[in-house]
């Protein structure tokens, strides 16, 4: 495993920890989209169907368990925790996330590397992950006072994808037959969706003001 891939995984892990820390310590999920979190839980379930059948490494298995466990606990907190759920911006988080699921499933059935159940679910998870951030970005745009942790969480998620792209470039040049167009294109689409956010993130950082996306 190369350093870019490890950095990408760690950034992803830290993003989840930041979010859980926010929820757990200040008992608030204000500014966080439940729609996006539910999509991520679905992404991990459909991607990690191979968790008990294909052993890759201990690292791989543990990380999969962490991502599955944390994504479900975040959804649980936001839906059922008696204090946390009160801070959920339900009226603002109105993105029809179900409309993202079906097109991704159809696309996975049409464009995949192998027509097997596990492979289609894996491909579906890639397509879904690419667009799962959309409800969160919409909510961010609508929220007037976004707290710092929410902004850091989104930034870390975007950074994780950007690092994965660098990892793919590195692997393409160092490993023979390393060619994964579906993964690359969905990862690229996902990173592009963060483009706007990154632009305003750096502006707010440069000018030392709170980030607020223009409506």
């Amino acid at each position: 495993m190369n350093i870019l891939r490890l950095a990408g995984d760690m950034t992803h892990l830290i993003s989840v920890i930041v979010l859980l820390l926010k929820i757990h310590s200040i008992k608030s999920c204000a500014g966080i989209s439940l729609k996006t979190q539910e999509l991520y839980a679905l992404v991990f379930v459909s991607r990690y169907l191979n968790i008990f059948t294909d052993f890759i490494s201990l690292y791989n298995t543990i990380m999969k368990l962490i991502f599955l466990g944390t994504s479900f606990s975040i959804v649980w907190y936001m839906r059922y925790h008696k204090i946390v759920r009160r801070s959920y911006d339900k009226d603002q988080d109105t993105f029809r996330h179900y409309f993202l699921v079906l097109p991704c499933l159809i696309l996975a059935l049409l464009i995949n590397e192998r027509f097997t159940f596990k492979e289609i679910m894996w491909t579906f998870s890639l397509y879904l992950e690419a667009v799962a951030i959309l409800p969160q970005l919409v909510l961010l745009q609508r929220t007037k006072n976004t707290d710092n942790l929410t902004v850091q969480y989104i930034f870390l998620l975007g950074a994780y994808r950007a690092l994965y792209i660098l990892n793919w470039i590195y692997r393409y040049f160092t490993e023979p037959d390393y060619l994964h167009w579906i993964t690359w294109i969905s990862g690229l689409v996902q990173t592009i969706l963060y483009g706007d956010f990154f632009y305003y993130y750096f502006l707010s950082w440069k000018n030392n003001v709170k980030l607020q996306l223009p409506a």
Partner: peptide, 10 residues
């Protein structure tokens, strides 16, 4: 049997 692809990334 080349039905399964190995996915080593998360």
């Amino acid at each position: 049997e080349d039905d399964e692809l190995s996915h080593d990334e998360l």
